[in-house]
């Protein structure tokens, strides 16, 4: 475990030499910061072209928004603060990740609801088929009558309820 800090230092030094050879368009002290910046601009939508995030868009407004994200990051703003600042100017439209609130709770919860619901239905089908089989094995009086009905070609809808 002792070696860990040294490793970390080596990693740092490495990333530093990497940075030194050519400047990034937006210069960051660490790779982590740069990655954070890249993730952030990939989650913001360009209000002008509307089909791109601001990382990919060539429009002037995306340029300005990237500048603002960079400026705020340099000033130590958190991701939420940066997104809020842009949302307060351009609207909720610019965030590709919809906020979790009253309107969107259904959206966010949907996958869980669908999977759990579907899972329960399948379990229900399996349980039922097993129940019926057990009933069939014990063959109660009623089941015998039912079996007779079925053999006679009648519907057994009533048994289902």
């Amino acid at each position: 475990m002792r070696r860990f800090p040294i490793l970390l230092f080596a990693l740092f030094a490495l990333s530093f030499t990497v940075q030194a050879e050519v400047k990034d368009v937006y210069d960051f002290d660490t790779r982590a910061e740069e990655q954070r910046y890249q993730n952030l601009i990939a989650e913001l939508r360009c209000p002008k072209c509307q089909n791109n995030n601001i990382a990919d868009s060539n429009s002037a407004i995306s340029q300005d928004m990237r500048d603002e994200v960079y400026r705020m990051m340099k000033n130590g703003a958190s991701n939420e603060e940066i997104v809020d600042a842009l949302v307060s100017r351009f609207g909720e439209f610019v965030q590709y990740k919809p906020p979790v609130d009253r309107r969107t709770i259904l959206l966010w919860a949907f996958p869980a609801i669908a999977v759990i619901g579907g899972f329960l239905v399948v379990v229900g089908v399996v349980m039922r088929s097993r129940q019926r089989e057990q009933q069939g094995e014990t063959l109660s009086q009623e089941d015998k009558r039912k079996a007779e009905r079925i053999l006679a070609g009648e519907s057994d809808e009533s048994a289902k309820g």
């Binding site: 990939a42 989650e43 939508r45 995030n53 609207g91 909720e92 439209f93 610019v94 965030q95 590709y96 990740k97 919809p98 309107r103 969107t104 959206l107 949907f110 996958p111 669908a114 999977v115 579907g118």
Partner: peptide
């Protein structure tokens, strides 16, 4: 479920807009 998720994620902004509850974007992070 995946089909429905993609469908809902695609049409949700349309529905919210219709209900005048704002213009949202649902993209990659979601």
């Amino acid at each position: 479920s995946a089909t429905a998720l993609v469908g809902i994620g695609t049409l949700y902004p349309l529905v919210l807009d219709y209900l005048e509850m704002g213009k949202l974007s649902i993209g990659e992070p979601f």
